[in-house]
Simulated assay, not measured.
Amino acid sequence: MSETTAGVLGRALPPLFWAFISAWGSGCIADPEVAGKVTVSRDGEELVIDTGGNGTKAVDVSDDVSGMCIVRKQGELSVTVAKDGEALSFFDVMHQADSPHASARIDGELYQGACEIIVQEQQGDPYEADVAAGPCDLVRLFDGAKARLETAVFHVSDCSGAE
């Protein structure tokens, strides 16, 4: 992995972590609606997290898939989905102007990559958007093993704010 990729990922992950902790600690996390589907391939295997209805159903507390979105500040949005017990158990896209990236946890290992992410705000509301990413490569940091984000498409609304 190049030093540039490692630097981009190193700068990108801490802001997401602190935004989540800040929002959680201040009690301002609402119940965002997250609907979508992500497909990652690794070694010829297709791995999917689907919120339901081929990505059209928003997750709720009774689902086995969870989802969250955070708007850190104007133009910076993170969308996360997770499903315990699956090979692809976690996926996150973080749209930041200087370092858009995606992260996936596959078989307990973290893969990350700098990916183009497209965010289309709905009706001028920064807390509601259509989000798309892929295709792009995701790399396991310590040994360079690769996975490929084929596609990630989400519709989010009522995202939490963490400014």
Results as ranks from 00 to 15, higher is better:
Ser2Phe: 02
Glu3Leu: 10
Glu3Asn: 07
Glu3Ile: 12
Thr4Pro: 00
Thr4Trp: 05
Ala6Val: 14
Ala6Leu: 15
Gly7Trp: 06
Leu9Cys: 03
Ala12Phe: 01
Leu13Asn: 01
Phe17Ala: 04
Ala19Cys: 09
Phe20Leu: 13
Ser22Pro: 00
Trp24Arg: 09
Ser26Gln: 13
Cys28Phe: 02
Cys28Ala: 05
Ala30His: 02
Ala30Gln: 10
Asp31Cys: 11
Lys37Val: 14
Lys37Ile: 15
Lys37Met: 14
Val38Lys: 11
Val40Ser: 01
Gly44Val: 12
Glu46Gln: 15
Val48Lys: 09
Asp50Trp: 11
Asp50Met: 14
Thr51Met: 09
Gly52Arg: 13
Asn54Gly: 01
Gly55Phe: 08
Gly55Asp: 09
Lys57His: 04
Ala58Pro: 14
Asp64Glu: 12
Val65Asp: 01
Ser66Trp: 05
Met68Tyr: 01
Cys69Gly: 03
Arg72Ser: 03
Lys73Trp: 03
Gln74Asp: 04
Gln74Thr: 06
Leu77Cys: 00
Ser78Pro: 05
Val79Ser: 00
Val79Ile: 07
Thr80Trp: 02
Lys83Trp: 04
Ala87Asp: 13
Leu88Ser: 01
Leu88Glu: 01
Phe90Leu: 10
Asp92Phe: 04
Val93Lys: 07
Val93Thr: 07
Met94Gly: 00
Met94Cys: 02
Gln96Ala: 11
Gln96Ile: 12
Ala97Met: 14
Asp98Glu: 13
Asp98Ala: 11
Pro100Cys: 11
Ala102Glu: 03
Ser103Glu: 10
Arg105Asp: 08
Ile106Thr: 05
Ile106Trp: 07
Gly108Arg: 13
Glu109Pro: 04
Leu110Lys: 12
Leu110Pro: 07
Leu110Ser: 08
Leu110Gly: 02
Tyr111Cys: 11
Gln112Pro: 11
Ala114Val: 15
Ala114Arg: 15
Cys115Lys: 13
Glu116Trp: 08
Ile117Trp: 04
Ile118Tyr: 01
Ile118Trp: 06
Ile118Gln: 12
Val119Leu: 10
Val119Tyr: 05
Glu121Ala: 08
Gly124Tyr: 14
Pro126Val: 11
Glu128Phe: 08
Ala129Asp: 07
Asp130Gln: 15
Ala132Leu: 13
Ala132Asn: 13
Ala133Tyr: 10
Gly134Phe: 11
Gly134Trp: 11
Cys136Met: 12
Leu138Cys: 05
Val139Arg: 06
Arg140Gln: 14
Arg140Met: 09
Leu141Trp: 06
Phe142Gly: 04
Phe142Thr: 07
Lys146His: 09
Arg148Glu: 08
Thr151Leu: 09
Thr151Trp: 05
Val156Phe: 07
Ser157Gln: 13
Ser160Gly: 03
Ser160Glu: 00
Ser160Lys: 03
Gly161Cys: 03
Gly161Ser: 12
Glu163Ser: 05
